[in-house]
Design a protein around this nucleic acid. Sequence first.
RNA 1: GCCGCGGUAGUAUAGCCUGGACCAGUAUGCGGGCCUGUCAAGCCCGUGACCCGGGUUCAAAUCCCGGCCGCGGCGCCA
Length: 444
Amino acid sequence: MFKREFIRDILAKSRELEGLTIRVCGWVYRIRDLGGVRFIILRDRTGVIQSVFKRGDTPDHILKIAEDTREEGILCVDGILRRAPTREGYEILALDAKILSNPIEPLPLETHDSLKASLPTRLKYRWLDARNPKVSKIFQLKSWVARKFREYYSSQGFIEIFTPKIVASGTESGADVFSVLYFDRIAYLAQSPQFYKQFAVIAGFEKVYEVGPVFRAEPHHTTRHLNEYHSLDIEIGFIESFHDVMDYVEGFFRKLAEDSRREEEIKGMLEEFEVEPIEIPETGIPRIPIRRVYEILASEYGKKIPYGEDLDPEGEKLIGNYVKEKYKSDLVFIIEYPWKIRPFYTMRKEDEPSWTYSFDLLLRGLEVVTGGQREHRYEKLKQNLKDKGLAEQDFQYYLDFFKYGVPPHGGAGMGLERITMQILRLQNIREARLLPRDTERITP
RNA sequence: GCCGCGGUAGUAUAGCCUGGACCAGUAUGCGGGCCUGUCAAGCCCGUGACCCGGGUUCAAAUCCCGGCCGCGGCGCCA
């Protein structure tokens, strides 16, 4: 490895390093050439620092190297750390330097200004776009969300599982999945780990979570859909009701809300994106039956959703605004969805079988989590399949899971990119995916 | 899948409605020059574009048709 230190660490130790010779390696962020003095701002993953090449102080052959330097090239600078009137308060007076790599042609995207380019252009040159520190922060936040997910559910006694992404059938009807040639057969890319996380509970792991890719073959043209994204999944055995599942989901979001107020790095990111941390009231995230939501939308906003139908995007936004004003909550559980719009494995209400023990969680007016209690009784599950008009034999391997002792269980799936998008209030979910796959895009 | 909007230098845009003075303007980038404290550095010079094909017209970046590509709304969903 190159002997180097991260810029953030150097600045953190600036008092003790002041006056000493140090080395910084990174990308050339900006060059300001004033003739006798040339400022080269270096950037690494952790920050930026100014190096200064000055006639009289820097050896002449090193000044020559500075002249050859191009923006976004890779440069190592050895020099003396000293105080300077820069944003960081310090700079490096260059005594030695080496170009490790220089661009071979003009850049198609100005890295430090990449947010001014259109999204298609940014995605086309994503490896340059992502060098923009602000863009990079999106992915650092996404990484933080995924880490919190693992930490939270691990701390609650969940076991991480890793399930196949090449599967024999879809989780719902077989539609909306990508087919792949699997030797001499057709297989599919998993649209959800649904069946296998239930499998894991039934297999005795009791409480499990998974972070993994899911694939949706739907030709969406929206700012909130991807054909490949990462799903944060949980599944829990021995629940008494679907409220237990919501409690676990709520615990995770509460952790996100609290830690984003506590951790300096995250606070800094939210400030840079000019967004507030997630707000959750002391009394908890409101849990509103969808039948009540129909009423609220109609009476408060004059918005008519056909009874028994799903909310449309406008309805979700409106109810998001409603709970923000009324409960000071960025989140709302909408519960007891109609059976007709939920998958066959959803448990129906005992007393009202056209409604279910299921829920969605909306974050700032966008659905980010779906979950519920699963039907764990073999005969009822078969009946559900029948009621959905699905062929039993297509799901036989799944039905077999339910033959030999199944605890009542439920779970939820959360869209990592949607959570990231909503926390930072990004305009397009593609911004929250390093290399988005959508209807047209499979490169880079 | 249905519907709508768009495509001008590397990037971002003006011009298009109302065809002609547009061999296409501006900013930034890029190349060169000046400048020893910049921090969106500044100043000077240069560079570079009308998506493709067909049509209308004396004349098309501008109007019409087709194609390709992009974006968005809905549906569906995380």
